[in-house]
C-alpha cells in the first residue's frame, strides 16, 4: 500500500471530512468504491465534480439485488487529472425505486437514466425525458430485472422451430437405461 495509493487515500480522507457516512473502499490504484446513502447522492456528485475535479461521468449502472429487495445504482465517475475512477454505490428500495436525477451535472446522464428507467423501472425525479428509449410498446416487467425470465418469455411469445424434438438429455438417457433413480434432495427439504 502506502506510497502507491497515497492519492487514493488522500481522496478518501477528504471525502470523509464532508461525508461522514460514506464508506470508501480503495480497491486498487485508480479505483475507489464508495457506498453512500441514496439521499446524499446529488450533493456528493456535485462535491466530487466541482470540488474534487471528477469531470467525467462514465456510466450509470443498475444492479438488481433481488434477494435484498434493493437496486444498487452505481455511478461511475472519472478524473482525467488524478486518473482515478470512482464507483459511487447507492442502494434504493426495489418496491418503489426512486432516485433524484443528476441531469443538472451532466448532460448525458439523462440518457443513462432513461435507459435504467426503461430496463429496471427506476424512476428518476427531475428528469423530464424518461420516455421510451430502446424498447417499443413493452408491457411486461422491466426486462433487466432479475425476475424477468427470458426463456419463459421466449417460450410464451415465440414458437420454437420444428424438427429438434428428438433431442435427449444425456444424464436422463443414462439414468433411464440403467434404472437409476436420482433422488431430489432439494425439493425433499422444502
Amino acid at each position: 500500500m502506502s506510497d502507491e495509493l497515497k492519492q487514493e487515500q488522500e481522496i478518501a480522507r477528504i471525502i470523509h471530512t464532508t461525508f461522514k457516512t460514506a464508506e470508501v473502499d480503495i480497491k486498487r490504484a485508480g479505483r475507489l468504491s464508495i457506498k453512500l446513502r441514496s439521499d446524499l447522492l446529488p450533493p456528493f456528485i456535485s462535491y466530487l465534480r466541482d470540488y474534487l475535479q471528477f469531470k467525467h461521468l462514465v456510466l450509470i449502472s443498475c444492479v438488481d439485488w433481488i434477494e435484498d429487495n434493493e437496486f444498487e445504482l452505481v455511478y461511475h465517475v472519472y478524473s482525467y487529472e488524478k486518473k482515478i475512477h470512482v464507483m459511487i454505490k447507492v442502494r434504493i428500495d426495489r418496491e418503489n425505486p426512486k432516485m433524484q436525477t443528476i441531469l443538472p451535472f451532466w448532460d448525458h446522464a439523462g440518457t443513462y437514466e432513461r435507459e435504467i428507467h426503461e430496463m429496471n423501472g427506476v424512476f428518476f425525479e427531475g428528469n423530464p425525458d424518461l420516455g421510451e428509449f430502446i424498447l417499443e410498446d413493452w408491457d411486461n416487467i422491466p426486462p433487466m430485472r432479475r425476475d424477468f425470465n427470458t426463456v419463459k418469455y421466449v417460450n410464451e411469445v415465440y414458437e420454437w422451430r420444428k424438427g429438434r424434438e428428438d433431442k435427449q438429455d444425456v444424464r436422463e438417457t443414462i439414468s433411464k437405461e440403467y434404472g437409476e433413480i436420482i433422488p431430489d434432495f432439494d425439493s425433499e427439504e422444502k
Binding site: 462514465v58 456510466l59 449502472s61 444492479v63 452505481v74 461511475h76 448532460d107 448525458h108
Partner: peptide, 27 residues
Amino acid sequence: GYYVVSDGSLRPRRVHVRGPAYVHGVS
C-alpha cells in the same frame, strides 16, 4: 468500458457495457 458484477455464482450478476457511441450518438 465494462462494468462486471459477480455474486459468487456460476453466472454474472450484471455485465454493463459502456460504449462511447452511447454518449456520442444520443445526447
